[in-house]
Design a protein around this nucleic acid. Structure first.
Length: 587
DNA sequence: GAGTTTGAAACT
DNA sequence: CAGTTTCAAACTC
């Protein structure tokens, strides 16, 4: 259809700034990034974090992207208002898959170029059609015609913004939000997404396997929010898999061919007996019965382990996920890359068992030591060796098991998903899925710390240090409360666990650094800003994990801030700064 | 690079 | 809210 020439610019209405300009809107507007909270938070508690998350995943991985631009954007976002330094850059549409894609394309060679250049002709760049406008930034170096999205037309721009907000208060908010379900599924071969489209797509012909689809472009699965037809962008979709698998994984052309094939049924439907019709829904019905009316069911269909995954999703190791995804989209666009944990081949499943055992021992010793201490104190009140006990004993143990533990924990990252997927409810008390021999994720482990207190005592204790489980406390002198013992145990266990995690992170970072330099070396020593950015971003991620956690990780890693120094000092070789600077040096 | 397709945004 | 139109990006040739 040719939009032909509507001779005059559409602006008719476009500009027809709605007479209604409420201050509230301005607030909204101003709030894009941070402030949007005022409006957003209530409705979408997850959104705030989601935003940074996305920004990180998508942008931070790019070489220290156009910092300057970022600033510009921020300013632009808040034209007349104050300009609170919004951390967020492209709050809203920034998440627009399209925008992102474009941006990414431009960074292809690693050199951050323009972040985007719209080609608007009829919208004056004052409607959401315009990516720049939608992103909250001024057009700069674009190929647009009759652009009003600039400083010269700030007034008009503001009005347009207000009008837009009038229509949709969320217009400038991120479209992609981290899923409330915490869906995060990391498969070996593909980068799945940890978010979902707030509004969902409405694709009809693309099968949601082309960039026309915002979900696809954002590299996320379609969700219950979507109203697409014949969707093939769901977990388990063969068509979708076809896009990620194969030797052509890096070839856009081939990928698109695959997409086309999938859409036309050449690959999927016919191949898998799934009617080309509303595959998503039908498929899900197949999977989960036909009662997929409830959106949640729909979603669950895609993420059967949604809830469980959530538990492990925030495993510290997953901090690399965003990075991966980011670099992914930063280079090619939608998920053409394969995610593979840097620690994947370092850790073995059995290591996790060992870790669990070690923790159990720690726990047991802690209790025992505590008991002894109490006794000692009773006799020689002044002779206190307080905190030393637990750590001393545990340190000893740790030194023995250190390496194994490190490996074990990290491995969990990759294995947890599987474990949870297959038997979310079959985990045994020691953190290992006995039936399948699979370990649970650190996150899950941590989550279960409370239970573990019990479990450790009741079942674990390999050498019967505690032996009597629950009775322990009753054996303690002076009727010492269980809570005290538990608290100490928990403290020990979590502390040790935390140490392990941090070491693992360090290991991963080091490995990543190596990979980066390797890559650079291979590419003729050419700078690889993307990787550098990845490292940096990851480092940052690591430092900010908690803010982005949905609480799970947070609670699993005790008093991070408090003992941060201590923590770092325990890290063998490199630490954040080292890794980072190291990387930079190597470049 | 022109033309077509697509789906979000805008509008009725 | 559904249907239609407008728009610009994605895609094809």
């Amino acid at each position: 259809m040719e939009k032909g020439e509507r001779g005059d610019f559409p602006p008719k209405k476009a500009q027809s700034e709605t007479p209604v300009k409420k201050l509230a809107r301005q607030l909204d507007f101003t709030g894009f990034g941070a402030a949007s909270a005022a409006v957003v938070l209530p409705e979408h508690p997850q959104q705030p974090p989601a935003q940074p998350l996305l920004r990180r995943t998508v942008k931070q991985m790019q070489p220290p992207p156009p910092q300057p631009q970022a600033q510009q954007q921020q300013l632009l976002l808040m034209p007349a208002q104050s300009q609170s330094p919004l951390p967020s850059i492209r709050p809203v549409k920034s998440e627009s898959p399209r925008t992102r894609a474009r941006t990414n394309v431009e960074v292809k060679d690693g050199t951050p170029k323009k972040q985007k250049q719209c080609n608007c002709k009829h919208s004056k760049c004052l409607k959401l059609y315009c990516e720049c406008f939608a992103s909250g930034i001024h057009c700069n170096g674009c190929n647009c015609v009759n652009c009003h999205n600039n400083v010269e037309n700030e007034a008009a721009r503001r009005e347009a913004v207000e009008a837009t907000l009038e229509r949709n208060p969320n217009a400038f908010r991120p479209k992609i939000a981290s899923s409330p379900h915490g869906n995060r599924e990391i498969k070996e071969e593909e980068v799945l997404v940890l978010a979902k489209h707030n509004k969902g797509c409405h694709c009809k012909k693309s099968g949601c396997l082309k960039k026309y689809c915002e979900c696809f472009q954002a590299n996320i699965l379609c969700s219950e929010n979507c109203k697409c037809m014949d969707c093939k962008n769901f977990e388990g979709s063969e068509e979708r898999k076809a896009l990620f698998h194969g030797d052509h994984a890096n070839n856009m052309a081939c990928i698109q061919q695959a997409a086309n094939a999938a859409i036309t049924g050449a690959i999927g439907s016919s191949g898998y007996g799934s009617p080309p019709l509303s595959k998503k829904r039908k498929g899900q019905e197949l999977f989960f019965g036909s009662t997929a009316k409830d959106p949640s069911i729909h979603r669950l269909g895609q993420y059967p382990q949604a809830n469980h995954i959530k538990a492990s999703g925030h495993s510290p190791f997953l901090s690399s996920i965003p990075a991966t995804r980011a670099s992914n989209s930063a280079t090619l666009g939608p998920s053409k890359f394969t995610y593979r944990s840097l620690l994947a081949d370092i850790i073995q499943p059995q290591d996790l068992k060992e870790l669990c055992s070690v923790l159990v021992v720690f726990s047991a010793e802690a209790a025992k030591t505590l008991a002894d201490q109490k006794n000692a104190m009773e006799r020689q009140p002044e002779d206190r060796m307080e905190s030393s006990l637990a750590s001393s004993s545990s340190d000893r143990l740790r030194s023995q098991k250190e390496s194994e533990v490190e490996k074990a924990v990290a491995d969990d990252c990759s294995s947890a998903n599987q474990a949870e997927k297959t038997s979310p409810n079959e985990s045994s008390s020691d953190g290992v899925d006995v039936s399948k021999g699979r370990p649970m994720s650190p996150g899950t482990l941590a989550l279960m710390c409370d239970e573990q207190d019990t479990m450790f005592m009741a079942a674990a204790s390999p050498k019967g240090l505690m032996g009597h489980g629950y009775n322990t406390s009753s054996q303690l002198p002076h009727g010492q409360g269980m809570t005290e013992v538990y608290a100490e145990q928990e403290r020990i266990v979590l502390t040790k666990f935390r140490d392990c995690l941090n070491r693992l992170i360090t290991v991963g970072e080091i490995k990543e650094t190596k990979c980066s330099s390797l890559a650079r070396a291979e590419s003729g020593g050419v700078k690889d800003p993307i990787n550098v950015g990845a490292v940096n971003a990851r480092t940052e991620t690591r430092n900010q994990q908690e803010p982005f956690s949905n609480g799970v990780a947070k609670s699993s890693v005790p008093s991070t801030t408090a003992s941060n120094n201590d923590l770092l000092s325990k890290i063998p070789s490199a630490e954040n700064g080292d890794v980072k600077s190291k990387t930079e040096k190597e470049t």
